[in-house]
Simulated scan of single mutants.
Amino acid sequence: MKVKAAVATEVKQPLTIQDIELDEPRANEVQVRMVASGVCHTDAVLRDGWIPTTMPIVLGHEGSGIIEKVGAAVTHLAPGDHVVLSVNSCGVCSACLSGHPAYCANLYASNFAGSRPDGTTAFSAADGSPISSHFFGQSSFASVTNVSVRSVVKVDSEIPLALLGPLGCGIQTGAGAVLNVLKPSTADSLVVFGTGAVGMSAIMAAAASRVHTIIAVDIIPSRLDAAIGFGATHTINGKEEDAVARIQEITRGGANFAIDTTGNKFVFKQMIDALAMSGRAGAIGASAPGSEGIIDMPSALARGISITWIVEGDAIPQTFIPELIALHQAGDFPFDKMIKTYNFDDINIAFEDSENGTVLKPVITF
């Protein structure tokens, strides 16, 4: 069937809107008519060549939509089901079987390689040449797409699908870093470096957990203002003051927990320096090649700190995304306030607005 898709054809170039062909879903796939898709930093990372893949490719990995067909081996989903799409995994490696699919041994092949495990692609051009698919098992920048069943999360049909797509990656990552990995208590302090969609999600999750001190660090005043509305108790503009000194002042010696969402090696060092004795850091931000860290190793050892690199919030999407929806419905996780919607044809504008910081979470709608 013919579908409309945004295709990445060259590194660091805008996506092009094309009519392409979609094949039939395989036994372990479902065919989803997309309603919306978030635009995430990881889409830009692939477009710009930070992570290798095969172009042309249909990106998009925060999709939401309605199932139209199910493969022969799919028994727990049906046409008409409303779904959110998330990270893909193999389901059979030790990480998947122990409840940590974000650390799947086949993570690259399942999410970034641009094809099914057998090498086929769901999309093709008019001349029959392949267009890479199955980005995060889904390639959601297409009006209809075939999705790996491991990427699919069934949700309540009464909740607007245009709202739910971003839960599949960025929001899940920030919230999961707090709720699944670091788990600060009500007596603790948490610093979040970078207040984009991932950082704000971490702040909201900390606020939902009633963490005592939540400090947001950024260089964009409007985002720092917004962070207060999402639950931050303090804000620091890293351009205007010494972030580490101010954190130590607020926390009286250093933060119990800290998260870096930026991937910037200098911010990463600030995160480490801002920790208290036995503090714990969570690294989330994707870094460009060559972003080696500059950690004071002796000091880190003497303070007994620990650093955890966190992928997708270490979440099982099929259970964690419904938890986030429940928190939102209870009024404790207002992620909808981050969203700005765009028509599908304006997808490159959505990318630009995300990159220049004017929008926290762009969502394209079909």
Rank of each mutant, 00 (worst) to 15 (best):
K2S: 11
A5G: 12
A6G: 14
A8Y: 00
I17E: 09
D19M: 12
D19Y: 04
I20G: 00
E21Y: 11
E24W: 11
N28W: 06
V35L: 03
H41L: 12
T42D: 13
A44M: 15
L46C: 07
W50N: 10
M55P: 06
V58G: 01
G63V: 01
G63I: 02
G63F: 04
E68V: 09
V70S: 00
A72W: 01
H76S: 13
L77H: 02
L77N: 00
P79G: 05
P79C: 05
V83W: 02
V84N: 00
L85D: 00
C90Y: 01
G91A: 09
C93E: 08
S94K: 10
S94V: 13
C96W: 03
C104A: 09
A105Q: 14
A109F: 05
N111I: 06
N111L: 03
F112C: 09
G114V: 00
S115T: 15
T120V: 09
T120R: 14
T120F: 05
A122E: 07
A125S: 15
S129V: 11
F136A: 07
G137D: 02
S140A: 15
S143E: 14
V144A: 14
V144F: 08
V152H: 00
K154H: 08
V155Y: 01
D156F: 10
P160R: 06
L163I: 02
G165R: 00
C169Q: 05
I171G: 01
G174T: 00
V178S: 15
P184Y: 11
P184A: 10
P184F: 05
D188Y: 03
S189V: 09
V191E: 01
A207P: 06
A207S: 15
T213K: 03
A216R: 00
R223N: 04
L224N: 04
A226I: 00
I228K: 14
F230H: 13
G231Y: 03
T235K: 08
I236H: 04
N237K: 13
E240N: 10
D242M: 08
A245E: 15
R246G: 07
I247H: 04
E249V: 07
E249N: 13
A255V: 03
F257D: 11
A258N: 03
I259C: 08
T261M: 06
T262N: 05
N264D: 15
N264F: 12
K265S: 14
V267P: 13
I272D: 01
D273L: 05
A276G: 12
R280Y: 02
A281T: 14
G282C: 10
I284M: 05
D296G: 14
D296K: 08
P298A: 08
A302T: 13
R303F: 11
S306W: 02
S306I: 11
I307M: 15
W309R: 11
I310L: 15
V311M: 13
E312V: 01
G313I: 00
E323H: 13
L327F: 07
L327V: 04
G331E: 11
D332F: 04
M338C: 05
T341F: 10
Y342M: 11
F344Y: 07
F344T: 02
N348L: 07
I349F: 04
G357D: 09
I364F: 06
I364T: 09
